[in-house]
């Protein structure tokens, strides 16, 4: 009964309840604590994926003012790297996670060196159009090479599930949430404690000032692209055993992650994380208590509402934050 193809489908596959017509019954369902806990846990899993991709996006935006939609393609390719590394090469899943991160970091660096860096001085919308171009090229190359069929990687944890009260998560979902926590913590430490991390924050807060204290823009940009691409690749690889994927998943995740970045405040790290949490939770809560079809409607509606009140985003502030 618990075939989790997408996180929201589980709840509406519960027999009966999405179709329940009676208002009285409805209230009873809303009060159901198990469903609430289940929705929150799945929301946390959802948010994890968004957070990893949105964090990379917001870092790149902060440092370079580039809306790098190509990150979506790296997320998708990360899933394929994990898939082929473990299915064809027989590598352990955990190793293939690292491989996805490394491989995508390499592509991220190439994107920067070959495309964004030469275009950056031209300014305007050129980098954005180039980013869309890279996304489409990689997406179509993947369709050409891997086909458009959906695939699912067997989880190293099998189908084992963890019961938390009345709610259930697969071990793999728990693992994904935990790994995300670890990665976010590592990035946070890097940004707060290391010299290059501080340079990245400084550049994101004031590019001229960073140049004037001696930060080498090029190095920081290269580092930012490496980091963001690795995060996107690992995110794709992490999710590949949980959500069926095909070459088009990159476009979907990047649209949502970009919306989250705008919502949280372009360039703000805190904004990206809080935004990911709000959107991830909203999606599953709405799916749990109304219907899955409404989850995007409510999530994006909420975003528009907040942007109407705070056009600079939740943590956009005066200057950019990081």
């Amino acid at each position: 009964m618990l075939v989790i193809v997408s996180q929201t489908s589980y709840i509406c596959q519960e027999p009966g309840w999405a179709k329940e017509p009676s208002g009285v019954q409805w209230t009873v369902e809303i009060m159901d604590l198990d469903i609430l806990v289940q929705a929150v846990l799945l929301g946390l899993f959802n948010s994890s994926v968004y957070a990893l991709v949105a964090l990379g996006l917001t870092l790149i935006f902060g440092v370079m003012d580039i809306a790098d939609f190509a990150q979506g393609a790296l997320y998708m390719l990360g899933a394929y790297v994990a898939f082929y590394a473990s299915q064809l090469l027989g590598l352990p899943y955990f190793l293939s996670l690292g491989l996805a991160g490394l491989g995508m970091a390499a592509i991220g660096v190439l994107n920067y060196l070959l495309v964004y860096r030469p275009l950056h001085r031209v300014g305007g919308a050129t980098t954005f159009i180039a980013a869309l171009g890279i996304l489409l090229i990689l997406e179509n190359a993947a369709i050409f090479r891997f086909g458009a069929d959906f695939r699912l990687l067997p989880s190293p944890f099998g189908h084992a599930k963890l019961a938390l009260g009345g709610a259930v998560l697969t071990y793999h979902q728990v693992f994904t949430i935990g790994m995300t926590g670890l990665l976010l913590g590592a990035v946070w430490l890097f940004l707060q404690r290391t010299k290059m991390g501080k340079a990245l924050r400084a550049m994101s807060q004031n590019r001229d000032a960073a140049a004037l204290v001696g930060v080498e823009m090029h190095k920081v940009a290269l580092l930012t692209f490496t980091l963001a691409a690795a995060l996107a690749g690992i995110a794709g690889a992490l999710v590949s055993p949980t959500r069926a994927f095909n070459p088009t998943i990159g476009g979907i995740i990047i649209l949502k992650s970009f919306a989250i970045v705008i919502f949280g405040g372009m360039g703000s790290i805190k904004g990206a994380l809080v935004g990911a949490l709000i959107i991830g939770l909203t999606e599953t809560l709405v799916a749990a208590f109304t219907a899955a079809q409404y989850s995007d409607l409510v999530a994006f509606g909420l975003m528009i509402a907040i942007l109407l009140v705070r056009p600079q985003g939740l943590f956009g502030g005066g200057g950019r934050t990081a």
Binding site: K198, R201, A202, N206, A210, V215, G319, T321
Partner: peptide
Amino acid sequence: LFPEMTVLENLEMGAF
């Protein structure tokens, strides 16, 4: 300045 950084962090950045 770097508005989100502390006074001390701004000074440290000066010594980058």
